[in-house]
Design a protein around this nucleic acid. Structure first.
Length: 161
DNA sequence: ATCGTCATATGAA
DNA sequence: TTCATATGACGAT
């Protein structure tokens, strides 16, 4: 795992890369987790850092990123990967409920499982888990704290409770 | 309006 | 195997 710092107007984010791509994104103030299930990346000589920084700043401003760096979420289970993939397909400014996603994945009634998978999302903000609300438009939870979820949604012009 | 229960995936104890 | 999660639908108080 190779860590780099990403300065933004919202503070210093931290990105962790494996040799396959971005596998962790940490909010300002969060510490690097000990248990890094991603393999070692000695060099990140590509322009992944630039791509990540641009995409991150776009998201923070409520805009759709033009290009994403390669993402490495190989550490997830099949189910989690399907959920995360589905998250990427939610357009900026729109939301889905946990139940909607479960249905879309063919797991009717699996809303709670989807919530758990969202919580396990290693790359928040770029993989927009903040666009998932409860069925009554309430905010569920958020790995980086609900303040961030609110802030991100507000900047996208989204309505929520 | 609140409460219990069941269903789902996953990891921890 | 039981319990707790970033849920939700349903039926009973």
């Amino acid at each position: 795992m190779h860590w780099t710092l990403l300065p933004t107007s919202d503070g210093l984010f931290r990105a962790g890369y494996s040799s396959n791509g971005l596998c962790r994104l940490l909010f300002p103030g969060q510490d690097v987790p000990e248990n890094l299930s991603c393999n070692e990346a000695d060099e990140v000589d590509l322009d992944w850092e630039a791509l990540t920084a641009d995409a991150l700043r776009a998201q923070l401003a409520g805009r759709t990123p033009e290009e994403m760096p390669p993402l490495d979420w190989s550490s997830g289970t099949d189910f989690q990967k399907r959920v995360w993939q589905a998250l990427l397909e939610i357009p900026t400014g729109e939301t889905r409920s946990y139940g909607d996603l479960a249905l879309k994945l063919g797991v009717e009634g699996g809303a709670r499982a989807v919530g758990t998978a969202c919580g396990a999302n290693p790359i928040p903000v770029l993989v927009p888990c903040h666009r998932v609300l409860a069925a009554d438009q309430g905010l569920g939870g958020f790995s980086g704290g609900l303040d961030w979820k609110r802030r991100l949604l507000e900047r996208e012009g989204t309505l929520f409770k």
